[in-house]
Design a protein around this nucleic acid. Structure first.
Lengths: 199, 199
DNA sequence: TGACTGACAGATATTGATATCTGTCAGCGA
DNA sequence: TCGCTGACAGATATCAATATCTGTCAGTCA
């Protein structure tokens, strides 16, 4: 058992990603996936109850991959302000890289994400938790002055949305992008920082 | 001359807005507009070179109307921080009101705006100038500490995009919206404010 | 026994024939 | 003369007939 030809959800997902890449979101069918796997399309339905759930699973894989490096930064150690800045810059870089490297595939994942809003919601919550974690560290370290960590982390996430939300991906080719990110991060870090101790 | 029945661009625009409201963006044709005006559709083309330019003009009217109250605040007097906050809250309120009152018409204008990106660009620049104006006032008053007013105003605009960009209008029904706006504005104002003078 | 197949019904997409719309312009009427 | 009309060509949208896809399930085979 567990030989190379066994049909697992993981293998289906891999092949599905490949089919999406080759055929595009609109044209990729369950029949195409089954053909690529050399099974009948009925077999795919043994592992995923519907086409929608299959697509959802692909979206989840994608988001999980994007999440990994961010989690590492959030869970790391060191001064919170630098960590927050690195976390945000990494978030931006991941998204910008995706859209630059393969805009077509990015559009595919974007539509997939709009369908699988539950999965996206969970992803966003993970990200918000990571920001909150860094902010809490910063408060402990005395670097940040924040009364409500949860509200502040949401504010940081909201304030940076233009540079990581796919709806704004067309603006990321602006040559002044990096200067704008610098200005925004400086503003936010100043807004978070604890006032210098009075003498 | 100049009697009530004369065909002016202004009258065409009014009727076009009405036709858009009644028929929806996809169904409204130049023939419909001409019929509502009780002229042949050829006459409409005497005043607007194309359907696209007619739509663009409608979008411009809409944006101009939205801009008026903001300009008044920006050009006003008083402490810059309060003025900036009022300006931003007014910006949000205008957009939120539009989407709540008549979501269908909002969607129409949204699509219109996507087509007329030149007009939208000019509108955004006007808004950015208004923020810059308030920030510059704040620096003069000693309330804000900002090295580059232009960059900072862009940062403020970028940071608040979630609450005024139509792409995020679906999120505006979040019951926590007002708390999120409060948190973000507090963060931004703190980021802008001049440090207390050392004793 | 349990994973897989393949035929099936209903839903969705494609296609090509037809109708409507956009944009032009020669000509009409004030 | 000047603003408007209405017929026209080419582009675009609609619609119904046809093909493909999704999701199910009784039956096959190891």
């Amino acid at each position: 058992m567990n030989e190379a030809v066994v049909l697992t959800p993981e293998r289906i997902l891999e092949v599905t990603e490949d089919v999406l890449r080759r055929f595009g979101l609109a044209k990729a069918t369950v029949v195409d996936v089954a053909r690529a796997l050399d099974v009948s399309h009925g077999s795919v339905y043994r592992h995923f109850p519907s086409k929608a759930s299959l697509r959802q699973a692909v979206a989840k894989r994608w988001l999980d991959r994007a999440n990994a490096p961010l989690e590492k930064i959030a869970e790391g150690s060191g001064p919170a302000p630098a960590r927050l800045e690195r976390w945000l810059r990494t978030l931006f870089a991941i998204k910008h890289k995706k859209v630059c490297d393969d805009p077509e595939m990015f559009a595919t994942y974007l539509t997939l994400a709009r369908e699988a809003c539950e999965v996206v919601k969970a992803h966003k919550e993970r990200l918000a938790d990571q920001v909150a974690h860094i902010l809490a560290d910063g408060v402990k370290q005395g670097a940040f002055h924040v009364t409500d960590v949860k509200a502040a982390s949401r504010a940081v996430f909201d304030a940076t949305i233009r540079f990581h939300h796919p709806a704004h991906s067309e603006e990321w080719s602006d040559p002044a992008l990096s200067a704008r990110i610098d200005a925004l991060l400086a503003l936010l870090l100043k807004g978070l920082e604890a006032p210098p101790r009075k003498r």
